[in-house]
Design a protein around this nucleic acid. Structure first.
Length: 420
DNA sequence: TCTGGGGTCCTAGGACCC
DNA sequence: TCTGGGGTCCTAGGACCC
């Protein structure tokens, strides 16, 4: 029988910040997303104050005394570095470490004689060597390990580590657990299940497989099997290479001019190309998308994307920027207030030009170099059409989910003309 | 005024061909 | 002219994760 361990860093971003600023200890701390939009990490103290995950910060900040809550902008470079340290530490326990996300990893501990002690050792070692507190959940499957980790977090008595391997332990744990807290069951499915009287994880585990299949597809069946202690999510199922690369940002303020949109798209194209090249990949499908602010009901809504399939995949920064600017000009409409722009690369393959140096070269002034290149390309290209040597077949490309809301229209002809 | 960014996988149904 | 079934490929859209 398998022994699967989930290592989950507690309040990861906050914990990282605390390593470098001990004055943040024991205080309510919140880390905000890009543009300081939403709370993406909260310390236990901040959670206790009722600050919700993903809460729009401008809506909640006035509810707290200034100075009571320490508020930080996110520093992803720092978090990525700390994540690497944690993962390196985990490799001391087994070579079989599957990095699942920036703050989580699965370890295969099959054959370990005393999983309970092992869990505690992992916790202590990671805390000692990196300063990051983690929760450990150990069980026969990944989904149950997630559940065990969840329990470890909820129960201070557990000491941050929990083993679920006996049938009655699993049963009791699942009885206490809401369906929505199961890994793989989201809000939509939880609501659907509740309507059919399934409210606990135990009920879902014992539900009819065919029924689950019809309502939740094979993913749901996998979850049920995992709850029944039958591993369905293999350790090496997810290939490490990315299937797509996306770079996008919301604007701090509404943007209307083509010029500003071009600046943004150039930047995203450059960043996406940089990521692409760092992975030694090339993209055969390049897509650019823009959207207005979906929260502004008083504004005309518009979102659109344009994409191109290339006969010869590209990985070159300048070409990527030119191409994305071309795509942008196809979908840009004047007299609107844009909130977001982005670039999506898909259909990725190994780059032919594997020997080329990474560009922009890594370094501290990477952003400055990036701007120079964008500037150069913009000047050279002007607003002229780009003669691009590719057999371009236009294809619709699916918009990101967030942009697919029915509130958007993609048909420009139906839009009244906005006055600025 | 201010509401994140980056991913994966699955399926129904249409288009097309034989 | 009408009708039909099976197979494959593609895409829009939905669900989930951190």
């Amino acid at each position: 029988v398998k022994t699967c361990a989930l290592i989950d860093c507690n309040n990861f971003y906050v914990s990282c910040e605390r390593v470098f600023d001990p004055s943040l200890a024991d205080r309510p701390v919140v880390v905000l997303s890009n543009n300081d939009g939403c709370a993406v990490a909260r310390s236990d103290e901040a959670k206790a104050l009722g600050i919700r995950m993903g809460a729009p910060w401008f809506k909640v900040k006035d509810r707290f005394f200034p100075g009571l809550v320490a508020v930080l902008s996110s520093n992803y470079t720092l978090y990525a570095d700390m994540s690497g340290r944690v993962m390196n530490t985990l490799e001391k326990f087994t070579p079989d470490v599957e990095v699942y996300s920036i703050d989580e990893a699965f370890l295969d501990l099959t054959g370990t004689r005393d999983p309970d002690r092992c869990g505690r050792e992992i916790r202590e070692t990671v805390l000692r060597e990196t300063g990051i507190p983690v929760s450990v959940g150990i069980a026969p499957t990944k989904t149950l390990a997630k559940a065990a980790g969840h329990l470890a977090k909820m129960n201070p008595a557990s000491g941050g580590s929990m083993v679920l391997d006996r049938d009655n332990e699993i049963r009791d744990a699942l009885f206490m657990m809401d369906t929505e807290d199961i890994w793989g069951v989201g809000r939509k499915h939880a609501r659907m299940l509740a309507k059919h009287g399934i409210k606990t994880a135990l009920q879902l585990r014992d539900a009819d497989t065919a029924w689950v299949r019809s309502r939740m597809t094979v993913c749901g069946v996998r979850t049920v099997m995992e709850l029944r202690a039958t591993p369905c999510l293999g350790p090496n199922e997810a290939p490490l290479e990315n299937r797509s690369i996306l770079r996008s940002r919301s604007f701090g303020r509404p943007v209307s001019s083509l010029w500003e949109m071009e600046q943004a798209v150039s930047m995203h194209a450059s960043r996406a190309a940089e990521k692409l090249r760092s992975e030694r990949l090339a993209a055969a499908l390049v897509s650019c998308f823009i959207a207005t602010n979906r929260f502004r009901e008083d504004h005309i809504q518009y979102s659109n994307s344009a994409s191109i399939c290339l006969h010869d995949p590209i990985d070159e920064t300048g070409a990527m920027i030119c191409l994305c600017l071309q795509l942008l000009r196809r979908i840009f409409r004047p007299n609107l207030f844009y909130k977001k722009a982005g670039v999506l690369l898909a259909d990725l393959r190994p780059a032919a030009s594997a020997g080329l140096p990474l560009f922009p070269a890594p370094g501290r002034d990477r952003d400055a170099r990036r701007m120079e290149v964008i500037d150069l390309i913009n000047r050279r290209m002007g607003r002229e059409a780009l003669r691009f040597a590719s057999s371009g077949i236009d294809r619709g490309w699916q918009m990101r989910r967030a942009l697919c809301s029915p509130r958007y229209t993609t048909c420009w002809d139906e839009l009244p003309v906005a006055s600025t």
